[in-house]
């Protein structure tokens, strides 16, 4: 679930926000959890944001952290809820698509829910009505 209704925990570093899921559900030790998150962040070239907090992140960085958090769930099924609300500064779905591509090995399915009038941003003319 990647949505503005499920924000990052503001008093935790970005990497802890992601690692939290595996630490809590799989009791993954700190060290391993951190290296796992860093490994994922490296794919985006964003290792430097690991120790940043929510308020210090850019919209894109925030989206990536939220995305990574979502893929931490075992057999993840990703639901993107109005991604353009999270990253309003992008005009098309390329960034979203590329981001998903980089971690395609970590999730089974992905569903994007958005307003009908944003369908041109996704480059589809007959988008499923939401």
């Amino acid at each position: 679930m990647i949505s503005l209704d499920a924000p990052l925990i503001s008093n935790l570093d970005a990497w802890i926000n992601v690692a939290l899921i595996k630490q809590y559900h799989e009791n993954l030790p700190n060290k391993k959890a951190k290296s796992l998150v860093l490994h994922f962040l490296e794919r985006y070239g964003m290792e430097h944001i690991a120790d940043k907090r929510n308020a210090a992140l850019t919209n894109k960085e925030r989206f990536i952290v939220m995305l990574l958090r979502a893929v931490m769930v075992r057999n993840a099924l990703i639901v993107l809820d109005r991604p353009f609300m999270i990253i309003p500064d992008i005009q098309d779905d390329r960034f979203i698509y590329d981001s998903l591509q980089l971690i395609s090995d970590s999730f089974k399915e992905c569903h994007i829910f958005d307003y009908k009038w944003f369908e041109d941003r996704y480059g589809i003319m007959n988008a499923e009505k939401n």
Partner: peptide, 22 residues
């Protein structure tokens, strides 16, 4: 209180993280 207002508690709930435990 801030976490509650910010809906961060709901986030934890979304990811099936028990707020009491965590």
């Amino acid at each position: 209180a801030v976490m509650k207002v910010n809906k961060e508690l709901r986030t934890l709930d979304t990811y099936n993280i028990d707020v009491i435990d965590y």
